[in-house]
Structure formats: C-alpha cells, structure tokens
Nucleic acid binder design. Structure first.
Length: 270
DNA sequence: AAGTGTGCCAACCGCCTCCAC
DNA sequence: TGTGGAGGCGGTTGGCACACT
C-alpha cells in the first residue's frame, strides 16, 4: 500500500480559484491563523486540497505579498543568490521580502534565464558560455552580475561558503550603482548571512528582515525619489484587492479584514 | 478578421524532510 | 529505531492573453 493522498481526491476541486473561495480562505486564515493545512478546506468550507489552500495563500493571498514584476535590484539579487544557492527558490525568496518562491522561479524561467543567455552567461553555472576563453576576463558579461563566483555548487556539509574565498569581500563592480550596489554590497559582505542560509539557522528570517529594513533606510536616504518599495504597507499589499472587481470588495474591503482580525484576536485570547 | 505562435503565470504533482508516535 | 503523516519544495503543465502573420 502506498502513501495515502494528502486529501481525498474525490470531490476535490482543481483549477483556478474563484473569488468566493479566496474569500473563504482569507476569512479562515485571518480568523484561525495558519495551522494544519489538511484541515483547512473542511473547516473553511472549501472543496480543495489542503496543499492547494496553502499554495493559494502563500503565493497569492498573503497580505504581505508584493505584486508585479521584479525590479532590477530584485532581479540582480536573484541572480546573485542563484549563483550561490542554485535552484533553492524558497531560500532565495526568503531574501526578497514580499516575493514567493513560485514567483521568483517563474521570473527566473521566463525572464532572467533568457537575459543571461543573451548576455552569454550560462544560467545554470553562471559562467560565461565560452568560459574557456577567459574565466577571469573582467570584460566578460559576468561582470554585470556582480561577479557571481563559480563555486555556487557549494558543498552544504562544509558549512562554509566557498565564495568566501573568492569574492565575498570584493568591491562592487563599476556598473553597480545606487540601491543595486547597496543591496549587492550587503549581500557580498554578509558572509555570516550566507552561512546561515546554508546552515538553516532559525534566527535567519529575523536577521534577514533586519538587514533588509536597514537597507531600505539606506536606500531611501540615498535616493528618496526612487520608487522602490521593499516593505510595502498593508494597504500597498492589499491594494490589488481594491482593483479586483470580481472580489466584491464592497462587502469584503479592509474593514472586513480588520473585522476578521479583531475577531481572530479576541478568539485567540480565549 | 481569423488563425497560429509565444510568453507568462497560477496551479498541480510528486518527492523530500521533519517530526510525532 | 522505524514508520507514517503533514508540510515544504522544486519541476512541470495548462490555459489565458497578447503578438504576429
């Protein structure tokens, strides 16, 4: 006997989520919090698999999500992190507040991959496609990628990033500027952070957010006219709901959210 | 205007890891 | 220590929207 499916396949709905289903799921999560996804569909009155609910929530409904295309800085960060971490999308996503692993994965496959190939860089190894010609050629396109080192296939058991030996303290490239260089500087110089990524230390998330907020402050000071929003507000993140006519936002606006939250808080206090 | 091709992204699938028992 | 269940993760796919002919 094989493992039982995560949910009863019979009667489980698949395909795109409807506004009503979204509403139910949001309602339930805000009231009860995220726990026991398997039970969520039943308790929330959804004919969905628990996994599907979790995915829908984490990838689409979570209020702290940032929507829209990745900006250049984020893209650069993704490239750099990918060079070090490989296809560990969830780890990469943890470095980009408001972005999901799925979103980053999609963006990588549809945009960045092609971009890198166009630039003559192997998106898998991050080495120039004609690497043999000049592995240390500073005029190679790789320069534009903040010199992603070739040691991205770091042995996890080492516990120490090989990149430490290569470019961890190297100065930013001349092409880097403004917020990009700030982000990348921080990334390159923060070896302990990268080690944490590999060691899966629990305080990582907090550390990352701390670092990001520091960066935001720096970046905003640096360029107040820049429209980057690393930590969008609740309204920013939920703004899309307002744009969503199908959502019936008249009866499911922020007041609704707040109401649910209040109820949830009260209930949790019991 | 209609048909076809391409790009994009939400969602699914199956494997892996973690943890409780 | 072994086993099974639940959640997490990464790869893949289906379908919609837009561009092109």
């Amino acid at each position: 006997m094989g493992r039982q499916p995560c949910c009863d396949k019979l009667g489980v709905k698949k395909g795109p989520w409807t506004a009503d289903e979204d509403k139910k799921l949001i309602n339930f999560i805000l009231t009860n919090g995220q726990c026991c996804w398997r039970a969520v569909p039943k308790l929330a009155g959804l004919r969905r698999c628990g996994k599907s609910c979790r995915l829908r929530w984490t990838n689409y409904l979570r209020p702290d999500l940032k929507r829209g295309l990745l900006n250049e800085t984020e893209e650069q960060l993704v490239i750099d992190l990918h060079a070090r971490l490989g296809n560990r999308w969830s780890k990469i996503a943890s470095r980009l507040p408001g972005r999901t692993d799925n979103e980053i994965k999609n963006h990588w496959n549809t945009h960045i991959k092609k971009k890198l190939i166009k630039m003559g860089i192997d998106p898998i190894t991050h080495e120039p496609l004609n690497k043999q010609a000049s592995s240390n050629d500073t005029s190679s396109p790789a320069e534009n990628l903040s010199q992603p080192d070739n040691s991205h296939e770091v042995k996890e058991s080492d516990g120490i990033l090989n990149s430490e030996n290569t470019n961890s303290s190297s100065p930013p490239t001349e092409n880097s500027c403004g917020e990009e260089s700030l982000l990348l500087d921080s990334l390159c110089s923060d070896d302990s952070l990268m080690n944490s990524l590999w060691l899966d230390e629990t305080p990582l998330v907090e550390a990352l957010w701390e670092m990001d907020t520091t960066l935001i402050a720096e970046i905003e000071t640096e360029n107040t006219k820049n429209e980057m929003n690393f930590v969008p507000s609740w309204e920013d993140n939920c703004g899309w709901l307002l744009d969503c006519q199908d959502f019936g936002i008249h009866d499911f606006g922020f007041n609704y959210f707040n109401e649910i939250e209040t109820i949830g808080t009260k209930e949790n206090q019991h």
